[in-house]
Design a binder for these strands. Structure first.
Lengths: 222, 222
DNA sequence: ACCTGAACACCGTTCAAGT
DNA sequence: ACCTGAACACCGTTCAAGT
């Protein structure tokens, strides 16, 4: 039968890239919980076992998917500008990518030794060197920046998980602020004092402020 | 039957605290994957459903377990010392606790709005205030420190997951360094340059260096 | 070489039934 | 009020069988 031949020899044969693309779509649309091999197989119109021919396991798939996203960030941010600007640009690129694909934040934290992290270290490290950071503190300086980025990344992923089908950032911040202030003010004075700032602050600005603190500290301590 | 009565009216009745204690033991011994309701029920010599009488679900249990660990950290570190020292002490306390219980790192990153995080913000914020950080940057300064701590926490949890049944930190660092240097030196010069430092560095010292960068930056930028 | 889809060995969670 | 444990609705992964 013609339809049968079409099905088995279709032009859109499976490949790791097609699987990764489909996985990213599912992750973006429904979050980490939505990505199952059954959902993936059904979207790709194949059997769940077929995916294992191209991908080692679920962890391998998640690594490939987040590597895909990070590679795009690094490709789109320029390394050939003033080092201070370059570091802020990669950091902000990471922030925006994780904002758009929160599952990437969780994935980076889960397996930080993957190639994507190495590439980020590479970009940050090169700029710090240009900035004149002495050899002995280069590693610590780079890891401070990367660890900070990872922390915010994880935080963002968690927020998105809580936010779920809302997408309303400011409502979400209000909810967190409300949660913070529901405790005893005598026991949690700081939480009460900053609750209003928490409600109204800009996430990107807050993120960059942290980067700037670290860069200033690196400059000060060398 | 006497044995029967003993079983149903035993002195060591279930309670949330007993469940949390057992969960922590399982998590410490076998990692996050080992904690299942079946394993927990068998250790507590009860049915898996009984646990649900005291605990809402698995997420609730993990929150309670990590809160338990963090509370101990905060109780054991003194807030009544010089602010700079106090901040370093909480940070280091967190680091050591997560080193001993890596699953806490993963849990903090997974649900950062939990009470434990609020307590950390509280401690850090109070010290920054004493340090004279101006009101307008207080929130950003505190969140920079907390996000950094979270990043390292997540990293540590991931490393422990990879390390698994080894526990040999230096062998692990060697393995990561080997992985980093297996790529093309022309494409990853920074990775090759710092591979040796990666192999020999002290994790706690590296962690504190990051804290000091941020504190110096806060002092510099105000 | 690549795909199919049933089967296996797990999960978290629920719930009727017990005490 | 609290506990029991079978049952339900899922998972990731494997693998004999197909093309």
């Amino acid at each position: 039968m013609a339809t049968h031949t079409q099905r088995t020899r279709r032009a859109d044969a499976l490949s790791k890239q097609r699987i990764v693309d489909a996985a990213i779509e599912i992750l973006d649309a429904g979050g980490e919980r939505a990505l199952t091999f059954r959902a993936l197989a059904s979207r790709l119109e194949t059997g769940s076992g077929a995916i294992y021919w191209h991908v080692e396991n679920k962890s391998d798939l998640l690594v490939a998917a987040s590597d895909d996203v990070i590679a795009r960030v690094l490709a789109s941010t320029d390394g050939n500008v003033e080092p201070f600007t370059a570091i802020r640009a990669v950091a902000l690129g990471m922030f925006d990518a994780i904002d758009a694909h929160p599952w990437v934040g969780a994935q980076l934290v889960r397996e930080p030794w993957q190639l994507a992290m190495l590439k980020i270290y590479e970009r940050v490290g090169a700029q710090l060197r240009i900035l004149g950071v002495p050899e002995r503190s280069l590693f610590y300086a780079a890891s401070a920046l990367v660890n900070y980025i990872l922390g915010v990344a994880g935080q963002n992923a968690a927020n998105a998980r809580l936010d779920a089908h809302e997408g309303d950032r400011s409502a979400f911040r209000g909810a967190v602020a409300a949660r913070w202030t529901q405790h005893d003010p005598a026991q949690f004075p700081f939480a009460h004092q900053i609750a209003e700032q928490l409600r109204e602050h800009d996430d990107r600005e807050q993120f960059l402020a942290g980067i700037d603190f670290i860069l200033a500290g690196i400059a000060a301590l060398g």
